[in-house]
Design a protein around this nucleic acid. Structure first.
Lengths: 357, 357
DNA sequence: TCCCTGCGGGAAAGGGCTTTCTCTGCGGTA
DNA sequence: TACCGCAGAGAAAGCCCTTTCCCGCAGGGA
C-alpha cells in the first residue's frame, strides 16, 4: 500500500504538505504544490490508512451500535432511523449483532470502545438478570467516564439517555381491544421471559384484562424465541393445551406471522374463529393475509431520537424519551365468535370494524 | 482513556511486558508480573486502542462487505452466510449499504481499503454502465495489487472470484412453469433495467417463452424499484395497460408481495384469476397468503461460498461458482383460467383495500 | 572456574498519519 | 538600510501499540 510519504516523495514535498492538501487543511498551500500532490495521489491510487488517521487525530467520529439482529425487521427499522441521522452528521456507524447473547453484548461494548467510537447505542430489550445488568452498567459507566456518550433504546437498566417505546401501554391497548371485541379466552405467544420487553408488554396486557374483570393465567402464556418459528411453535402448544382460545396476542409481529401459519395449518379461520394481534407493526404486517392488526411502535423514529440524543443535535432534549404505542386495526382481530366453540361446519362470516372500541 | 503505558506504570512493568500479558504472547512472563498486569487492567478498565493495534500489527484481519441494503431480506440472507464463515474464522465484518448508488459503492471501496480490510466482498447486482464498471474495476484492481482479496456475488463485471446465482436459468424456470400452466398473456414486474440482475432474469424468461412459441413484448414489462412498493406500483400500471393478463412474474419476492397487494386491492383472486411468480424465495415468501410460488436462490450458501473463496478456506475452489436456481411451487401459480376474460358480473368478493399506487 | 545457554524482562524502533513548532525568504515600514 | 511580520513549507513530536533486539542473570557442562 502506498503511504503518505510515498506520495510526498513523488510530489517532491514534505509529508506535512501532502497531508494538508489531502485533508483540505486550513493552512494555505500554493497551487503548484497542491497540483503535484493531487497528481501523485492519483498515480499511486493512494488511500489514507484510516487507522493511522484515527490514531493521529484526537477527535472520535464513528458511532457504535449494538442490536440483537439487524436483519430482524424490528431492528432494521430502528437502524434506518439511526443511519439517517448519522449520515446527516457525517458519522460512520459500526453495527454489531449480539443475537440476544448477553456475553456477546458485553464483548461488543469493549470492542467498540476499543475502536474509539464517539458514542454507543444499545437497542433491544434489557434482561432480567441482575449480574449482567450490573456488569453492563459498569462497562458503560467506564466508557462514559472517558467522554463517551451512551444511549439505550428500549432498555431500562441504564441510567443515562434512553429512548423507550411504551411497551406497557402497547400491551394495554392490545388487551383493551380484545376485551372490547368480547374475548375472554385469550392466549399469549410471548418472547423469552428473561427479556424486559416481554414482561413489560405482558404487564400492560394483564392490566387491561384485570381492569375488565378478566384474567391472564400463566397457563395461557407460552414463551418462545422472538421470531417466526418461535411464534408458530408456541401457538401450537397453546392450542393443544387450550382449544377454546378465541384470541391470541403475539408479543411481536414475527411471532404473529408464525401464529398465523400455525392457525392456517390447522384450518382455523382468522379472524372468524380466532383473532390474532401482533406487536411492532413491522412493514410486512400489512402484507400478510389477513393483514395483521397490531400495536405500532415508531421504530424509525426511535432510531432518529436515540442518535440525536447521543450526537446532541437539536435542542437539549430530555434524557429519557418515551415514545407512544398505537393500535393499528387491520384484519386479524374480530369479535368473539357467537359460540366460543365454533361449529365446525359453518364458520360465521364476521368482518372486522363492526364493533367500536 | 487509559493507555497501555498507564497499565504498565501501575503494574510496575514495561509496556512490552504489559502488552505480552494482555495479548497472551508466546513469550513467557512470570506469574507474579502477569497477576500485577491483569490487576492493573481491571482497575483501570483498560481496553486496547484498536486502531493502534491494527497499525502496529502487520496482518489485516477484518473483511469489508458492500451490499445494497442489509435490511433487504435478500441481502440479509446472504449476509447471514457471510457472517457464519467470518465468525468461524474469527474475522470481523464491516458491512456497508450502498443503497444501489454506484457512487456510494465506489466510495465504500475506498473507505474499506482505508480501513485495511483483508478482503472485500461486493454483493448485489451489477450495473449496465460502462464508465462505472471500468472505474470500479480499476479500484478493485488497485486494491488487489496491494494484496487484498476480492469476491463479488451476482455481478459479472469483475474478473476475479465470483459467486453467481443462476439468474438466467431462474428466469427460464419461471417462464417454463407458466407456459406449462397454459399462460400466454404474461406480464413482468421488473427491477431497474440498469441492473444486470433484472436483465439476466428477463433474458431467461424470454428464452423460455420463445421456445414455446410465445413472446414477451416490452409493453408487458414494467420497470420499477426492486422493492414492495415498486412491485405494487408496477403491477398497477401493468394491469391498467393490459387487463387480459393471466400471470405476472415479479423479478424478486419483495416486488411479488407488492404485486399481491395490488391484486388483492383490485379484487383479483390469486391464483384463480391471475397467477403470480416471485424470485429469490426469501423467508417471508412462505408466509404470505397464498404462499408465494417462486424461484429459489441459495442465498445463505452464496454468502458462505463467497466468504470461503475470499478467505481461502477449504480446498482451492474454482474462482467462479455458479449456484443453481430452483423452482419452488407454492400457491400463487395455477392453471390459466378457462376464460381469459373474467366475467364482469360476478366480481369476486372485494377485499379491504391496501391501495397500491 | 569459565563459558555457554536459555529465560525473563526492558529499550526502542517502527506503523502511517496529523499538527505544532520552527525556519526561510519576501514585502513593507520606519 | 535595517527591521518586522507574515506567508508558505518542512522538521519533528506525538498518537498507542507490537515486536524485534538486546541485556542481565542463573544454571549446567567442560
Amino acid at each position: 500500500m502506498a503511504t503518505l510519504s510515498d506520495v510526498a516523495r513523488r510530489a517532491g514535498v514534505s509529508p506535512a504538505t501532502a497531508s494538508r492538501v489531502i485533508n483540505g487543511s486550513s493552512k494555505p498551500v500554493t497551487d503548484e504544490l497542491r497540483e503535484r500532490v493531487l497528481a501523485a495521489v492519483a498515480e499511486l491510487q493512494y488511500v489514507p490508512n484510516a487507522h493511522a488517521q484515527l490514531l493521529a487525530r484526537s477527535h472520535r467520529s464513528a458511532v457504535g451500535v449494538i442490536v440483537h439482529d439487524v436483519s430482524d425487521p424490528y431492528f432494521a427499522e430502528i437502524t434506518r432511523g439511526l443511519q439517517r441521522v448519522a449520515t446527516d452528521q457525517g458519522r460512520l456507524l459500526m453495527i454489531c449483532n449480539s443475537y440476544r447473547d448477553p456475553d456477546r453484548e458485553l464483548e461488543y461494548v469493549e470492542l467498540l470502545r476499543g475502536h474509539q467510537v464517539a458514542a454507543l447505542i444499545l437497542a433491544g430489550s434489557g434482561y432480567h438478570d441482575e449480574a449482567f445488568t450490573r456488569q453492563l452498567n459498569e462497562k458503560l459507566a467506564a466508557y462514559e467516564a472517558t467522554g463517551g456518550r451512551v444511549a439505550v433504546i428500549g432498555r431500562h437498566e441504564h441510567s443515562g439517555d434512553a429512548v423507550m417505546p411504551d411497551n406497557r401501554t402497547g400491551g394495554y391497548l392490545a388487551g383493551r381491544e380484545l376485551c372490547g371485541l368480547g374475548h375472554r379466552a385469550i392466549g399469549v405467544v410471548a418472547g423469552p421471559r428473561i427479556l424486559t420487553t416481554t414482561t413489560d408488554r405482558l404487564a400492560g396486557l394483564r392490566q387491561a384484562l384485570t381492569e375488565q374483570g378478566r384474567e391472564l393465567p400463566e397457563r395461557r402464556i407460552r414463551y418462545a424465541e422472538f421470531d417466526r418459528d418461535g411464534g408458530a411453535e408456541a401457538t401450537a402448544r397453546l392450542l393443544d393445551a387450550d382449544p377454546e382460545l378465541t384470541a391470541i396476542v403475539a408479543l411481536n409481529d414475527s411471532m404473529a406471522i408464525g401464529a398465523l401459519a400455525t392457525l392456517r395449518g390447522r384450518g382455523l379461520a382468522v379472524p372468524q374463529q380466532i383473532s390474532v394481534l401482533g406487536f411492532d407493526d413491522m412493514p410486512i404486517a400489512r402484507d400478510v393475509t389477513p393483514a395483521l392488526t397490531t400495536v405500532r411502535l415508531p421504530l424509525v423514529d426511535m432510531g432518529v431520537r436515540a442518535m440525536s440524543l447521543v450526537l446532541g443535535v437539536g435542542a437539549p432534549t430530555p434524557r429519557v424519551e418515551v415514545l407512544p404505542a398505537e393500535l393499528v386495526r387491520r384484519d386479524t382481530a374480530g369479535p368473539v365468535p357467537p359460540s366460543t366453540r365454533a361449529p365446525a361446519g359453518s364458520a360465521p362470516r364476521a368482518r372486522r370494524g363492526d364493533t367500536a372500541s
